[in-house]
Amino acid sequence: MRQSRFTEAQIIGMIKEQEAGMPTAEVCRRHGLSPATFYKFKAKYGGMSVSDTHRLKSL
């Protein structure tokens, strides 16, 4: 499987920006990803914090 060029912390940061009110198109443009990829990340990491992802890695 291809490795993401974004860390989990960066992905969660992007999701938090969008949840704070920034339009999805603007978040995608600033970070250089497609809206489809953003929504795929949001489905996987939505509602998580950075500490949650560290806990998942240890399983």
Rank of each mutant, 00 (worst) to 15 (best):
A20L: 13
Y39I: 03
Q3F: 06
I12A: 05
I11H: 03
G32N: 06
P23H: 13
H54L: 15
G13T: 04
P23L: 07
Q18S: 15
I11A: 00
F6H: 01
Q10D: 07
A36N: 12
M22K: 15
E8N: 11
E19T: 06
G32C: 02
R2K: 12
A20C: 11
S58G: 08
Q10S: 10
M22N: 10
R30K: 14
R29P: 00
D52C: 04
S49T: 15
H31A: 01
L33M: 14
M1D: 11
T7K: 03
L33R: 04
A20Q: 15
G13V: 02
C28I: 01
F41N: 00
C28N: 01
E8M: 05
E17D: 08
D52T: 06
Q3A: 11
A20I: 09
M1I: 14
E17H: 08
G21W: 05
E8K: 11
C28R: 00
G46K: 04
Q18H: 13
L59R: 14
G13P: 00
Y39V: 07
F41V: 03
K40C: 11
T53M: 04
H54R: 15
P35E: 15
V27T: 01
Y45C: 04
Y45Q: 01
A9I: 06
M14K: 03
F6I: 02
Y39K: 03
H54C: 07
I15S: 00
M48G: 07
A25C: 06
L33S: 00
L56P: 01
G21E: 06
K16P: 04
L33I: 15
L33H: 02
E17V: 03
S58F: 10
R5S: 08
A9P: 06
E26A: 15
E17T: 02
T53Q: 00
T24P: 03
M14W: 01
A25I: 09
F6P: 04
S34H: 13
K57E: 09
A9N: 10
M22D: 10
R5Q: 10
S51K: 13
M22T: 12
A20E: 14
R29V: 06
V27Y: 05
E8W: 08
S49G: 11
G21Q: 03
Y45W: 09
K57Q: 11
S58M: 14
H31C: 08
A36E: 13
Q18F: 06
L59H: 11
P35W: 02
D52F: 03
